[in-house]
């Protein structure tokens, strides 16, 4: 009953989400009464790999290769590692890479796959996991019925736990790996994010007081990789361009996270943001209607709160 976890590096480094995945794998192995093996593909220094011991890593297979992500090649390596380590459960992150590889691995192993799993299983015997369905409108429990099982974990649903122990790094031969694709160019995500496509939106209202006060708001948006937006009076005043105006008569947005800073929460404004997953409101008036639409609220003066927010998020981002 052992578990194989595929871990992904970015430029030879692991992100915080990998620690979650590793410690999740360890907890699954404990639940199943087995051990956990990690597989890393690409070039990662031994120290970086060994750090994962603190999150429960036992054996780490390191398959060094220069071949860029190729779905078929990587999936065959993962499946081989699973077979060699005798894994009955393969775990990956539910991100672009996991979505690409997990289905192929599942077929190779004749395994049932449930993707985007929330946290630890509901039960191990039978193996039942919980996930969102219908784009979040429903929660579903699914049982994987095959001997070997593949799951992908929704990020931040399991949390990070630390464990005592050391990781042992072993090399896995990846010399036979070839690629069916040619990478022409790679573009690292930067630059301004379009309001309509942004996952995070930082929006200011009349509570921002004047056009000159927008710099700290843009700074926060920069830290969060967010697009900026505003309420209608703000664009009517000319503090911000009209294409940033959100609401009934402006753009309708549906980001994962919407910051309403100094926005009272008029129904016309809410009409443009009500599909946002999470709304954070900052307002000096505790009675402002925005608080009944928001998920998290801070009552305070933006003059002081906004710079503190920027600092706190900057700290978080740099540690992640």
């Amino acid at each position: 009953m052992s578990v194989l976890v595929y871990i992904e590096n970015r430029n030879g480094k692991f992100k915080k989400s990998t620690y979650e995945l590793v410690s999740y794998g360890k907890r699954l192995a404990n639940g199943l009464g087995g051990s956990v093996t990690l597989l890393s593909i690409g070039k990662v220094a031994e120290d970086e790999l060994k750090n994962l011991g603190a999150y429960g890593a036992g054996t780490i297979l390191s398959a060094e290769t220069d071949v860029p992500l190729d779905d078929r090649a990587y999936a065959s390596l993962i499946a081989a590692a699973a077979q060699n380590s005798g894994a009955t459960l393969v775990v990956m992150a539910h991100n672009v890479t996991g979505k690409a590889l997990a289905p192929r691995v599942a077929v190779r192993l004749n395994a049932g796959l449930v993707s985007a799993v929330n946290g630890l299983p509901v039960s191990y015997q039978p193996f039942v996991v919980s996930k969102k369905a219908f784009s979040g409108k429903s929660l579903m429990q699914a049982e994987i019925t095959t001997d070997i099982k593949v799951i992908t974990l929704s990020q931040n649903t399991a949390g990070i736990e630390t464990f005592a122990g050391n990781a042992a790094v072993e090399t896995m031969d990846a010399s036979a790996v070839t690629s069916g694709i040619t990478v022409l160019s790679t573009e690292v995500q930067t630059g301004k994010i379009l309001l309509s496509e942004a996952d995070v939106v930082v929006s200011g209202g009349r509570g921002m007081r004047s056009a000159d006060n927008w710099e700290p708001l843009e700074e926060l948006a920069g830290v969060l990789g967010a697009a900026t937006a505003c309420s209608r009076p703000v664009s009517d005043e000319g503090w911000r361009p009209h294409h940033e105006h959100v609401g009934q008569t402006g753009k309708v947005v549906a980001p994962n996270l919407y910051f309403a800073l100094g926005i009272s929460g008029a129904i016309q404004h809410l009409a443009g943001i009500s599909s946002s997953k999470v709304i954070v409101a900052v307002n000096k008036d505790p009675e402002a209607p925005i608080f009944s639409a928001a998920d998290y609220g801070i009552v305070g003066d933006l003059q002081t709160v906004l710079p503190k927010m920027t600092e706190a998020f900057r700290k978080f981002k740099s540690g992640n």
Binding site: A106, A111, G112, L113, V114, V128, K132, A133, G136, K137, S138, L139, M140, Q141, A142, E143, I144, T145, T146, A281, F291, S292, A294, D295, Y296, G297, I298, V299, G300, T304, V305, K308, M309, E311, A312, K315
Partner: peptide
């Protein structure tokens, strides 16, 4: 098939706004 649906649940209702102390943005 490799898996089957066991059951469904409605997602939790949106809860009231959580208020956070402006001195504790972390």
């Amino acid at each position: 098939p490799g898996s089957k649906v066991v059951g469904y649940q409605a997602p939790p209702q949106k809860s009231a706004c959580k208020m956070i102390d402006p001195e504790n943005i972390d």
